[in-house]
Amino acid sequence: MNRQKKKLVQRLAEYRPSDTLPPDLQDALQKHPDIQAEWQQTHRLVSLLSLKQYERPGPDVASRCRSSVLRQLRSVDSEESYPFFDWRWDGATPLLRLGLAAVFLALIGLQFVSSPDQGARTAGHAELGSLTFTPSAPAEMRRAAAPARSTPIDFSAIGITNWPAPTQQVGVHSLVNFGQ
């Protein structure tokens, strides 16, 4: 196919069979009967294809599709969690990520340098005999109370008799010191 014919075919491809061709195209077609025959064939093919519009879905298909989509969207909406729980790391801005990482590292750092009475404080309260010390009690008293919780377990009560005896009765020792 020479260049002129190719150009003509390309121009024709822009039209639908139902369109009226511009006069220059009609003239060009008359000069090339082979292309005119091809165009007529294309015309018939597109007419044939246009008949597919008569393949129509059942009357309830459209409403069924829509109501199914809406039902699914409503159920997604009702299951939606609070934005706090929806938060995603990759959705955060770089500055926010940096800030959160800094806070996290600071918390880890604080954990390392925390005071020895941290355990008693976090436990809520420590007991010593009939006395109960709350976190608001003086630090000295709480420090004395904490070791008392490490009183050795009496394994003989549960049938273990050959357990090595503890070398130091820390709990009792502290109790004596506290009494002084």
């Binding site: 879905p57 459209a62 069924r64």
Partner: peptide
């Protein structure tokens, strides 16, 4: 959906030539 469903259905149906596939895909698309 009401406005564009018909055309979208037509596109998918003519691409698949299968009415059930077309119905499922229309829902997926929306």
């Amino acid at each position: 959906m009401r406005r564009h469903q018909g055309k979208i259905y037509g596109l998918i149906y003519n691409m698949t030539s299968n009415q059930q596939d077309a119905e499922d895909l229309v829902q997926e698309v929306f």
